[in-house]
Design a protein around this nucleic acid. Structure first.
Lengths: 131, 131
DNA sequence: TCCGGTGTATTACTATATTAATACACATGG
DNA sequence: CCATGTGTATTAATATAGTAATACACCGGA
């Protein structure tokens, strides 16, 4: 069993339920091809510890992913990305990213930032996330 | 009483509680200087109708804003931006926008998009939000 | 077999979010 | 005064989110 170094970004104060954040990230990783069939996710206990949440919360996320056919839960081994889980078409992935970027940009405008300022922030974040 | 054409963007499926979305947007509008002391927010009933949520939910958001000193609730008139509510320093506003942009960009990467693709999406969204 | 890991079941609990409905107090304008 | 708007109080309900604790079943390796 290959222990994945994968870590989920959980922002507890973001207002989005924890389990939902996990689900969303796994879905994105699979859609983007960074998780492929046969890959294992970090265990319920690992994620719970790393993110400092209850294991059952993580299990809930994984349960939803299983219902969606993204992963298969293998007792004793862990969560395995399904054979049927394929990366998404580019257009779809674009659309999903757009739906995250657009509100963020809109909020930046509400905050009174100019296009130029928003652009600078964007480029900085893009660079930061390159690691 | 000046009826504000202001409308809140409420994304029910985003996972962020509705009242929280309202609060965040008002805070951003004030920080960005687009709402200034003496301005009135749309009424509880207006927002509830527009967003198709219960008035008490909106009232909750407004109540939190009042507790934070952002608005004053004037019975019979509506919600008025407080005299003490001032736009935030640029650095703070930048920081806030960054905290929204960074996760969105990170997710875009998880989705397997290249920098170039992310940039194109960003520019498109920036243009769209210019209206 | 033992050990260390995997996920699960289970019941109960707490906290939060949202809603309902309706009458009330307040404000403004005619 | 009436009409139309404002926010509020109130009690109760439902749904959701997260947690606790612990033992169980399963798995793989030594």
């Amino acid at each position: 069993m290959d222990t994945s170094p994968l870590q989920f970004d959980i922002a507890p104060s973001s207002g989005v339920p924890i389990y939902r954040q996990i689900v969303d990230q796994v879905v994105a990783l699979v859609a983007g091809g960074r998780l492929t069939p046969g890959d294992f996710l970090p265990s319920v206990r690992q994620v719970a510890q790393t993110a400092d949440v209850n294991p059952m919360t993580v299990s809930k996320a994984y349960g939803l992913l299983e219902s969606d056919g993204v992963v298969e839960r293998i007792r004793g081994q862990g969560m395995c990305v399904s054979a049927t889980a394929t990366s998404g078409p580019l257009a779809e992935r674009r659309e999903q990213a757009q739906q995250l970027l657009a509100p963020a940009i809109h909020r930046a405008r509400l905050l009174g930032l100019t296009d130029k300022q928003i652009r600078a922030l964007f480029e900085a974040s893009l660079k930061d996330s390159a690691k």
